[in-house]
Design a protein around this nucleic acid. Structure first.
Lengths: 186, 186
DNA sequence: AAGATACGTCAATATGGCTGACATAAATTT
DNA sequence: AAATTTATGTCAGCCATATTGACGTATCTT
């Protein structure tokens, strides 16, 4: 391996490994900029909620569960597992806490009594609403100065970033169906 | 199969806490749709790399380190800590692996010999390029059908989602400076 | 009655984060 | 020259969140 001898301020291009791009086969133009922007944007986006959650003794996992239960009232445990892509065991602990502390309630399904349908309580709604408020502030800030059709472009982009081919994804299917959510339809 | 059968069991509206929205104080319109799209988009976006990384025995943390070292050759450890917002100890473990397995090399700074400047090796470049290729494919797919100025809108949105107020963020500053990266400038 | 499904739980383990404390070398300040 | 600060590394231990595998129970389906 070549030694990379150059000063801090003026790197020697010859021995700088970064000088020669090694793109994936068939790739010439990699989207470094957008890859990086996505990282930073998401980091700061979830950072808003993370900070707030600490005061409640909750983590990001709790937020995700509460969010989707709020958005899709009556969600089954199995649905939640599909959406969050975690295991039953991981979900179990988080969900138990949310149930114990009255952020979420379970109701036995009427059609299928094996099911435990999940609903956010008023307490849960308040928390998830507060968190969504923080994130909405950031989104609104980011969208200010973007025309309405530009906002639609952003939505289109984000929607197209999501896997469509995966039949497991219950919620993605709903999202694609015109952007209406279960809650919107209700 | 799994279904979002929120209406299947026809929950009792009276006992359904989700019936009443409880938006954060002062907020009327929360951006539920974009919040959710960001979650799914990012989940699938990083999923591409995560799958590939498993074959190398690496995790997401390794990818992030390798990515930024590749993008900003000669990055200091302290810079990396700021960017990734993790502690020295957490970074240490991951970085050590990448050094031991020759994905990254360290060089003592010429100006300040305390510094360990980081560079990706050819091996590291190859891996990070491969991962970026996967993510670029997804991004290109998502951007297909979006006009050039629409792509600029997406970039603008993502950039505006990032915290600007934080002076610690070495790289964010660079990103804001017209979108040129350290690597682009070199 | 038999089998599949939805859910819960136990046990063990890995990863990636954290804090606090301490060590060393090198730069900077006094 | 001595003292202090800075950049980095490391040790020890803790926590949150994820994993797989196995098993139990209630309930629906065939």
């Amino acid at each position: 391996m070549a030694d990379i001898n150059f000063s801090t301020s003026s790197p020697d291009p010859d021995s700088r490994p970064g000088a020669a791009r090694s793109p994936a086969p068939g790739q010439t133009n990699l989207r470094w900029d957008i890859i990086e922007l996505l990282f930073f944007a998401y980091r700061d986006f979830v950072g808003d909620a993370d900070t707030e959650l600490e005061a409640f003794g909750f983590g990001r996992a709790h937020h995700r569960v509460l969010h989707f239960v709020h958005r899709y009232p009556g969600l089954k445990v199995a649905d939640l597992l599909n959406v969050l892509r975690i295991t039953k065991q991981s979900l179990g602990r988080v969900l138990k806490q949310l149930l114990d502390e009255d952020y979420i309630v379970q109701r036995t399904g009427n059609n299928d009594r094996r099911q435990r349908l999940l609903y956010a309580t008023a307490k849960g709604e308040a928390l998830v609403g507060k968190l969504a408020g923080l994130q909405t502030d950031r989104i609104n800030h980011a969208l200010s100065g973007i025309a309405p059709d530009g906002v639609e472009t952003v939505r289109h982009f984000l929607r197209a970033m999501i896997d469509h081919d995966d039949p497991d994804k219950v919620l993605a299917t709903i999202l694609e169906a015109g952007g209406a959510t279960a809650k919107d339809k209700a």
